[in-house]
Every structure is written in C-alpha cells, then in structure tokens.
C-alpha cells in the first residue's frame, strides 16, 4: 500500500504544480485534501493494510497530508500573487491622461497684494482698519492741511458727490482714515488702511480712475523719521526681496513735514536704468512723511508731545511691479483669462 501513498503523492504534487488559478487550486484542494478527497480515501483504506503495517501506514498518510497542506499554502500564495500581478498589469493606464480636476477659483491679484502687505504690517504691530469711500471733503482735504483753493488740491483730481451744504467726495486717497483713526483713539496709534480710491483722471496703461491704496499711520511719543525709514525698508524687502536697496528722498505732501518719496532699486535692471524705472534705476513705490503738526492739532493731539509718520501706496502698482503686469486696466476689466493667472495659494 505504501506504493499507493507514494503514487498519490507524486500525482498530487504534479497536479498542484499545474494548478495556476484560484479555481484550479480549489479544485485540487477538494480532490486531495477535501472531506472526500484522496487522502481521506487513503486513510480509510487502512483497514486493508496488515495490522503490523498500520501504524507506519497511518503515519505515512498523515505525513503526506501535512506535506500537501503545506505545499498547497505555498502554491496558493504563489498563484494569488501571480493573479494579482496579472490584474494590476491589466489595469495599467496612460498616466499622462488628465486627472479629474478639483475646481478651485482664485483671489483677485489686488486682494492678494492687500493681504500680503497688510500681513507684513500686522506682524510689525499695525492693525488693519477700513473707512468710507464716500467721504466728507473735510476728512479728504481740510483736516489733512489741504485748504480749499490751494494749488495742492489740484494734485488730487476729485470726483464729487451730489450734496447740499457739505462737500462730499469719492475719496481720492486713503489718508482721510488718518484723521478718522486719530479722532477715535488716543496714542499709541498704529494702523494700516487698505481700500478703494477714486480720481477724476483719464484712464491709460498706468492710470485708473478707480484704484486701491494702503495707508499706514504710527503716532506716539518718540516716533521718528528713522523708524519710518526702517519700517518701510523692512516692508519693501519682505515684499520685493531681501537684496533690495531703498532710497529716501525729499518730497511734498501737505499733510506731512518732512515729506518723503520712497523708492526701491529697480528689480528689472538691478539699478542700471531701464524702461520701467525710466532710466533712473529707482522705482518709486510710496509717499510718506512725518505727520504735519497742523494735522495732529486738527484731531486734538498735542504736536509738542506726539510725533507720527504716515505713508500711502498704490496697490495696483505693487502688483504690476511684482508680476510684470503691463497695463493697469487689466485689473478691472474682470477678464477671467487674466485673473486666472493669479490663481495660486499665497506663499
């Protein structure tokens, strides 16, 4: 009978090697190791074995059963792996096909720049506040030391609003919020004010009648022009790169004294002189200065005790410089083909 055990063994192992699918394996398992399989049959035939050989026979069958079970497990793992790799091979795709897009929109470049600039100033200790766009002439001009009929008023070509007794305008700058802020609080004052402004101005590639400014104001004891210079330099380097050189020069605005024009070295030509900087090597990015004592007096601050500085910058210009936008009109034509190019997460 032991010949029979060996025959079954040979046959089972040969067939197992042939079985190359899960189904064939299952069938093999049933045939040999199943309840009515060959091994069960062999064990049943123990009765036909002479009694003295039975223990050895029984051991041989059991050993075979164990061997086959082990070989089965091994083979099964092989087959499964091979089947999986076949499936995976069949599932191969052209990985260059487009993905299923997650539709994400974008913020307007002016909003992005306002966020970037105000965040820099927030971290320098300035609070963001906003104010009205439709504004009294008092706040837009008089309180800022720009009297009626003064030639300085011509600098701001103003759009006026229909009113009765009081002069009401579309604010031509964000500076009225200097007055409103100081009227509401006592020093120390440190604010930045983003917002829309309007001018009665012919529109061309660098001028818009509707634009955005960011105003800054710091007032307290011991606020100096050296702080102004340091703060603006820090700002410019954070926005335009640490390697930027800065230039402070004298300029005139009626609500500051001394007045400042703040420029950075041209990033397009590195100060050599090019079309963007009109050959000067410098790009003016904002006006600033020490708050005029009369302005402090207008809001009830004592100019002998307090000093302050203020600055104002055009947001569109910053975007144009930073990203090389050639024409300011692109911002408000609202063309999605332009705006979509700014769809990015802020750095």
């Amino acid at each position: 009978m032991s010949g029979e055990v060996e025959r079954i063994r040979q046959q089972a192992l040969a067939e197992l090697q042939q079985a190359s699918s899960t189904a064939a394996l299952a069938e093999w398992h049933g045939r040999y190791l199943g309840r009515r399989g060959e091994l069960t049959q062999l064990m049943r035939r123990i009765s036909q074995v002479p009694p003295e050989e039975r223990p050895a026979y029984g051991q041989a069958v059991n050993a075979l059963k164990e061997e086959l079970a082990a070989r089965f497990e091994q083979r099964e793992a092989e087959v499964k792996r091979s089947e999986l790799s076949q499936r995976l091979a069949a599932e191969a795709v052209d990985v260059t096909l487009p993905g299923r897009a997650a539709d994400v929109g974008g913020l307007h470049p002016v909003t992005q720049m306002i966020r970037e600039v105000t965040t820099i100033f927030n971290h320098l200790g300035f609070q963001t506040v906003e104010g009205p766009e439709v504004e009294y002439g008092y706040y837009a001009f008089d309180a800022l030391n720009i009297p009626q009929d003064h030639p300085a008023r011509d600098v701001w070509d103003t759009i006026f609003i229909v009113s009765d007794q009081k002069e009401i305008v579309l604010r031509p700058h964000t500076s009225p919020m200097q007055i409103r802020t100081m009227e509401r609080r006592q020093p120390p004052v440190r604010v930045v004010v983003p917002g829309r402004c309007y001018r009665f101005e012919a529109v061309d590639a660098t001028h818009e009648w509707h634009f955005h400014q960011i105003e800054g104001l710091a007032v307290d004891e011991h606020i100096t022009m050296a702080d102004l210079k340091g703060t603006l330099a820090e700002f410019a380097r954070q926005l335009f790169g640490q390697e930027r050189k800065v230039r402070f020069r004298c300029d005139y605005f009626p609500f500051v004294e001394p007045g400042v024009d703040f420029a950075i070295d041209c990033m397009f030509c590195r100060g050599e002189g090019c079309r963007v900087c009109k050959g000067t090597g410098w790009i003016e990015i904002l006006g600033a200065g020490m708050v005029h004592p009369q302005v402090l007096r207008n809001v009830g601050y004592d100019p002998e005790r307090y000093t302050g500085w203020a600055f104002g910058m055009g947001v569109e210009r910053l975007v144009m410089l930073k990203y090389g936008v050639p024409d300011i009109r692109l911002f408000y034509q609202g063309d999605l083909r332009f705006l979509a190019q700014f769809n990015r997460a802020l750095a």
Binding site: G125, Q127, E221, I223, A226, D227, K229, G230, F248
Partner: peptide, 17 residues
C-alpha cells in the same frame, strides 16, 4: 535723507486685532 539711519519704532505697541 540718505544720512538717516534705519530703525524700527520703539515704545508702546497696540493689540493687532
């Protein structure tokens, strides 16, 4: 103005709310 040093404001700060 180039003779002015670059500093940062001293003194009291305000809560940036």
């Amino acid at each position: 103005y180039h003779e002015l040093p670059e500093a940062l404001p001293l003194g009291r700060t305000v809560p940036v709310e």
